[in-house]
């Protein structure tokens, strides 16, 4: 198992390296001129050239990459051209917000999807199953930019149960923090519930056709025990793979709710940075998000080996 994980880790390190190059190229090949951002549109060509030299932007790309990546390894992601805030600091304050949003939305998604799938997979095409399966189609059709404003309109503006905007960190005031998190968290959870429920239900139904389920029944075990102990684990592969991809997408995909609820997470920061042409911030956040995604895939690989010991055999 260790050999397998080491191999996967090696692959992911290579992927991470390639991605860092892609992130670098993305930002550097974007049209636009950082000197315009810093000096404004009316400065002289001479000053611009001076600034480019000062920023090292006149060097060949591979040298610039090398300088950037070696700084990254020493923990220095540069600073914002606009606010002069260090990129590391932006990420350090923003990332916990994304993390909390992701945790809230995913915990809710799993807490709804798993019991529902376990319940309906044993009774497919009965009323509960039909309602749940149709209902998840509805959830799939409610992306954050549709459902979050509706939540705000109903629960914040009309009913005044929750604040419309704002974020209080957990360490400052846990109760307010959780209260602030409910609407944005739920707005992000809708599609996840639908995806997880549908995958798990469909995999459970095919697992329940397996011989080993009949075998378990022939031992006199209860249906509940069989569902939990024999059917659930072998049915979680698609679920885990989808969760990996989905959480990965949420790493930067929280920007809608962060934008709407005015929370300074990474998603919000990157939108602001893009609008302000703040190159180093974009580059830094993109890198962090990409690395987090790679780490996430490694965790999913590890979970595969936990759930199914056969995986490590290849």
């Amino acid at each position: 198992m260790l050999a397998y994980l080491a191999k996967r880790l090696g692959q992911l390190v290579v992927v991470g390296f390639i991605i860092s190059i892609l992130v670098f190229l993305l930002v550097h090949l974007l049209p636009g001129d950082p000197t315009v951002v810093i000096l404004g549109p009316n400065d002289t060509a001479h000053n611009r050239a001076l600034l480019l030299a000062q920023l090292g932007l006149n060097k060949p790309l591979y040298q610039q990459y090398w300088i950037w990546i070696s700084h990254v390894f020493s923990g220095n992601l540069g600073e914002s051209y606009v606010t002069h805030e260090s990129v590391g600091h932006i990420i350090a304050t923003g990332f916990p917000i994304d993390l909390e949003l992701i945790i809230v939305s995913q915990v809710v998604a799993f807490a709804v999807a798993i019991p529902l799938a376990l319940f309906t997979a044993r009774r497919p095409n009965r009323p509960v199953d039909n309602v749940a399966t149709t209902g998840t189609f509805g959830l799939l059709a409610l992306p954050p930019f549709v459902i979050a404003p509706v939540f705000v309109a109903v629960f914040a503006v009309a009913l005044k149960w929750f604040p419309a905007t704002g974020y209080t960190s957990f360490t400052t005031d846990p109760a307010t923090n959780i209260h602030d998190m409910i609407l944005p968290g739920l707005a992000l959870t809708a599609a996840s519930i639908a995806v997880y429920y549908r995958l798990l239900r469909s995999d459970l139904i095919s697992t329940l056709q397996e011989d080993f389920i009949t075998m378990a029944r022939s031992k006199g075990l209860s249906n509940r025990y069989i569902m939990m102990r024999h059917a659930f684990r072998p049915s979680t592969f698609s679920l885990m793979a989808a969760a990996g991809v989905n959480i990965g997408a949420l790493l930067a995909g929280t920007f809608i709710v962060e934008y709407l609820f005015a929370m300074n997470g990474l998603g919000y920061s990157i939108v602001v940075a893009v609008q302000q042409r703040d190159y180093l911030v974009i580059q830094g956040i993109a890198l962090v998000v990409a690395i987090a995604y790679v780490v996430l895939q490694f965790i999913v690989d590890f979970l595969f080996t936990v759930v199914d010991p056969r995986v490590t055999r290849e």
Binding site: D211, F212, H230, R233, V307, D308
Partner: peptide, 11 residues
């Protein structure tokens, strides 16, 4: 059962 490969739970 006939086939122990499929009748034993693999995980």
């Amino acid at each position: 059962f006939q086939d122990p490969m499929t009748a034993l739970n693999p995980v």
